[in-house]
Simulated scan of single mutants.
Amino acid sequence: MKILVTGAKGFIGRNLVERLKTFKEYEVIEIDRDNSKEELEKEVLKADFIFHLAGINRPLIEEEFMDGNVKFTKDIIELLISNKKNIPILMSSSIQAELDNPYGVSKKAAEQVLLEYGIRAKAKVYVYRLQNVFGKWCRPNYNSVVATFCNNIARGQDIWISDIHKEITLVYIDDVVKSFIHTMRSNRTTNGYLTISPEYKITLERFIELLKDFKSGRITLRLPDMSDEFVKKLYSTYLSYLPEDDFKYSLDMKTDYRGSFTEVIRNLNMGQISVNISRPGITKGNHWHHTKVEKFLVVSGSGIVKFRKIGEKEVFEYKVSGEKLEVIDIPPGYTHSIINTGTDNMVTVMWANEVFNEETPDTIFQEV
């Protein structure tokens, strides 16, 4: 199946093309502004399905709206009509089509051209009036508040807001692409307007607050709430705008003669992840918890984890090694220790179900 995508190098087009390439049954034909009219005509007639995503939204002069949005659509339609083709077309439009401004008027006119083609050629046509789309690869400082704010906050640059209480509606790029492909593959017979689900409504104040929390997370080690689908998608988007020389950041390694202990991640919902390095012969721990639980995973070196239930004398031992990855559960009510019995440093990944709080540490020292 040959699929043609106009606007293939744009934000939505690029994401769609890369997803389509993962399906072996599709041949993707990419058309963008650097293709000639002859190339467009040749490729359009080869297509079994067309994603028409090309358009103009930031022209130098107002007249370019009609040329880039309406005339370009007409050129494709007339080519199909003159060659007696009824190729299905999915077009990305905008909620601006509901407004009386030059861009909105041009998008609505382009929609009408497509809908008329559906009637004339008895072709399947689908129009998506998209809300503000956010996600990776969107151009900052252009026409996306999400891309601009993610980019600028990640770089410590200023942002400007006229009304922090303004509410915006957003849809995520992967949801857009998923819906587009589903519509194509479902071969649905219903023509006309379609929408993306889910939509997310958020005030600019809350939106900026989240982005600033993402940025400070490298210091606080706090991950955002990944159970919130919008927050998860926005966090992924934010990270895609990090400067390419700033992917790495340092952690606070607490070191002494025994080795080191380093917190990596904190999250109020999922607890805390740390990395513990023990030098040969070193014993760490010898404490217990009332409620806090942990998991130990030795990923390098070898050692022994010892347990003793509080108030009893019997000691239990578990051998651990990076040669065989096994998780050790640390239940409450057992004093425990971990001993490096090898000749190299032992590295242990540790998870606790709650973030450490100095005021209520729930850590009682007692020898195993």
Score class of each variant (00 low, 15 high):
Thr73Leu: 08
Glu111Trp: 02
Met350Lys: 12
Arg185Phe: 09
Ser274Glu: 12
Thr262Asn: 02
Ile310Lys: 09
Gln112Cys: 11
Lys232Leu: 05
Glu167Ala: 10
Lys107Phe: 01
Tyr128Asp: 07
Ser92Lys: 00
Val133Asn: 04
Glu18Phe: 02
Asn286Glu: 13
Phe11Glu: 05
Ile31Met: 09
Pro361Ser: 06
Ser94Ala: 07
Leu16Ala: 06
Val127Pro: 02
Leu53Met: 09
Gln96Glu: 15
Ala121Gly: 07
Glu294Ile: 13
Arg218Glu: 15
Gly322Leu: 01
Gly68Trp: 04
Cys138Tyr: 04
Glu39Gln: 14
Lys166Phe: 10
Met350Tyr: 05
Leu114Thr: 05
Asp225Phe: 01
Ala8Thr: 06
Met270Asn: 13
Val125Thr: 11
Pro224Met: 03
Ala121His: 05
Gln157Pro: 02
Asn353Ala: 02
Ser82Lys: 15
Thr255Ser: 13
Asn286Ala: 07
Asp252Thr: 07
Arg279Gly: 11
Val368Phe: 00
Leu20Cys: 01
Lys107Trp: 01
Glu229Ile: 15
Ser250Thr: 15
Lys21Ser: 09
Asn83Arg: 07
Leu20Asp: 03
Glu199Thr: 15
Leu268Ala: 12
Glu41Gly: 09
Asn357Glu: 09
Thr283Lys: 13
Asn191Arg: 08
Gly68Ile: 09
Glu354Thr: 14
His182Gln: 15
Gly13Ala: 03
Thr291Cys: 05
Gly13Trp: 02
Lys309His: 08
Thr220Met: 07
Cys138Met: 12
Gly135Arg: 01
Leu90Asp: 10
Ile119Gln: 12
Ala109Tyr: 10
Asn132Tyr: 00
Arg308Ile: 00
Glu98Cys: 05
Met253Ser: 14
Phe134Ala: 13
Glu199Phe: 00
Val125Gly: 00
Ile338Ser: 11
Thr291Glu: 14
Gly7Glu: 04
Glu294Gln: 12
Tyr257Lys: 15
Ile12Ala: 13
Lys21Asp: 10
Glu314Trp: 00
Leu325His: 12
Glu38Thr: 09
Asp48His: 11
Tyr26Leu: 05
Lys24Tyr: 05
Ile31Asp: 04
Glu294Gly: 12
Arg206Asp: 15
His336Pro: 07
Lys215Pro: 03
Asp225Thr: 08
Gln112Trp: 03
Glu359Ser: 11
Ile56Gln: 14
Val299Ile: 15
Thr360Ala: 11
Glu314Cys: 00
Lys122Leu: 01
Asn276Cys: 12
Ala123His: 06
Tyr26Ala: 08
Gly311Thr: 06
His165Lys: 15
Asp67Asn: 13
Gln96Cys: 09
Asp225Gln: 03
Lys313Thr: 04
Asn152Met: 01
Thr189Tyr: 07
Gln96Arg: 15
Ile50Tyr: 06
Val44Glu: 03
Asn86Phe: 00
Met91Leu: 12
Asn191Lys: 07
Glu199Arg: 14
Glu167Ser: 08
Thr6Ile: 05
Glu64Ala: 14
Ser236Gly: 13
Val327Met: 11
Ile50Glu: 08
Arg139Ile: 10
Val275Arg: 01
Leu239Ile: 10
Val315Ala: 00
Asp252Gln: 11
Ser321Phe: 06
Ile50Pro: 08
Gly118Asp: 01
Ile3Asp: 03
Asp34Asn: 13
Glu111Met: 08
Tyr257Ala: 15
Lys166Gln: 14
Asn132Thr: 14
Arg206Phe: 08
Glu229Trp: 02
Gly342Tyr: 09
